[in-house]
Design a protein around this nucleic acid. Structure first.
Lengths: 195, 195, 195, 195
DNA sequence: GATGAATGAGGGTTCATTCAT
DNA sequence: CATGAATGAACCCTCATTCAT
């Protein structure tokens, strides 16, 4: 990658990071290109040098988030930890990303009504990958006896629900630190798997 | 209430029910008054006979949901069941409302950026009431020894997270029936409270 | 006229009187049929029993005002007073109507852009009649030597301007009573005619 | 001021000048943003680059008019002419502005029901300034014996009424030139002050 | 590359008017 | 006669997108 391309890439990531924050706060339709530009001290028109259109920008936001998340979970899945440890790591990582790295997992609930063409499939496939990884860990645990009496799909949905919801109420500097939450959620959620 | 007023009220509720569905799917800014009207075979302008403006309609949607939910939970709180039974009832009721009655709990994440004036306070206060009821049940359980080693606030948030998330993935007629989900969630979530 | 027709006529006049007040305050486009109805404790739809449409209502307002004014000025023109006395009477009458009887002379500045069809001509012709009467009085005064060195048209426009403007600033119960204004305007305006 | 800012300012003034004409003819509520835009060969949306909303545009129209008028009258007030000469100048200037420069004095009769927030006060204060200047000239004339037996406030209202009304009937190219009107109004109106 | 001007489609809202009851 | 529901056209305003400079 040439120096120029590197700078371009760097700029794109800055924009994405900034945009993601606003998009999370105000939602897709509640956020204007002007607001995104303003926060970056750019003009509206300049955004179009970096992204084809609003959907493209949103898609890139989504992609970067899912890239990071999937990289993390892959690493965990392929590690040598016990199944229980893997689930703990997944939970901690998920909470860390959403509270500390401002990674937004629930930017868009319904890819179908937001994206068009290939973007839909890409997003859906990246999401499925994340879900699949969790399911694999759970299945692994069932196989080796760590997890008992569970419905894999429902447990995954229950866990992800409580994790994704955190961003609705988490306040940096609030009564509960990210650490506190992690400890508590890890303990309680793993408990639902181990019987 | 006169016959006319009854019909008015009935119509309002029809609109609210219909609007809530679309609002849930597409979000506040993603839903147009025209779409809401079209689904009811009305014209856009007619909606304004029943609601002052879009915010008013959204507020009424919210209110009706919270009225129902709060009525239900009050009933449970004041019943003679054991603490464990009460939590089970709350979970079952919450899931029932969101999957069967199409009651949407997470219409708006940030009342402050959606509502104006008094509406903000009303919504916030109704939400707090619901949260408070759950906290009371949890506290009761702690006091009488049913629940152990729990952080009331974090447990409440964890449980509500997994419950509210259900609407993101629940499909009527899908693999898991509302009943299945209830049974599983009741068992697993109560388990996190009883140690 | 039958009793029924009399009642109808009476009702129409009530509406007109009430409507004229609001129309003066808020202007044609600033006043809604609903507001007019509300002030009369009627519903919007009922107005359409009495008037074909908004323009019709506005036209009737205009007509009633001009009927009264023209009746008054005809009376003065045909009286046996001196020319000076006649002008004094016209000024007093005009001020009286606009301050006491709430008769609005300047409801519509440009009949052409407000009315359609025959209504335009009717309004224009009634206005011309009023102007003509004043011109006749002025001409009479010139002929009999009461008024000197005047341009009839310009004097008429000057006088009517200062009179019609009164409604822009007159406040019942304010510093200047209707009487005060009349006395002062009569004195000063007649002075411009008599040299 | 940069070249760019100059062009912006120039464009704004063009719009204001054009809008003022239509606003005078049709009134605030009778004029649409589309009409204003069309006359300038723009599209509706483009107007919003220059003005925040319709009220803002109207306010700027008003402001530019009152700025000009107040500058003129201040100049006259502070000049070395006699009181009589000053009043003559005021009248001539007022007529000149309204007939030749298309400056509209009576765009809005009731600032309170048209403007909101600070705009109300700004307009009211600018209007008061103009009225005050006239009152000062009249008072000056009373003090030095040029004007006799006058009620300053009522004389000011009478004069301004006849002057503001001119725009209701003046037709460029009509029977009376702006000059004719000025000469006649100066003579007759000053006469009402000097006894 | 960056900017600001311009556009045009679309959304929320108002309101005169109609009409069934 | 009166009412209130319903309509649809028109209006203000926003905003994603384009483009000349």
């Amino acid at each position: 990658m040439s120096l120029r391309e590197q700078k371009l890439q760097k700029k794109k990531e800055d924009i994405i990071r900034s945009a993601a924050t606003i998009l999370q706060e105000k939602g897709l339709h509640g956020t204007t290109m002007e607001e995104i530009a303003a926060q970056l001290l750019m003009t509206k028109g300049s955004l179009y040098h970096y992204f084809k259109n609003k959907e493209d920008l949103l898609f890139q936001c989504h992609k970067i988030i899912l890239d990071i998340s999937n990289e993390k979970i892959t690493e965990i899945l392929e590690s040598n930890q016990s199944s229980i440890h893997k689930m703990e790591s997944v939970i901690r990582s998920h909470i860390h990303l959403s509270t500390e790295e401002n990674v937004i997992f629930s930017l868009i609930d319904k890819p179908e009504s937001t994206f068009s063409g290939q973007n839909i499939e890409k997003v859906v496939s990246q999401r499925s990958y994340y879900a699949n990884c969790i399911d694999k860990i759970l299945q692994e645990g069932v196989n080796n006896g760590s997890f008992k009496n569970i419905n894999i799909k429902l447990s995954r949905l229950m866990i992800l629900g409580s994790l994704n919801w955190i961003q609705q109420w988490y306040q940096p500097g609030g009564a509960n630190t990210s650490e506190d939450i992690s400890d508590y959620f890890v303990q309680k959620l793993v408990q639902t798997l181990t019987d």
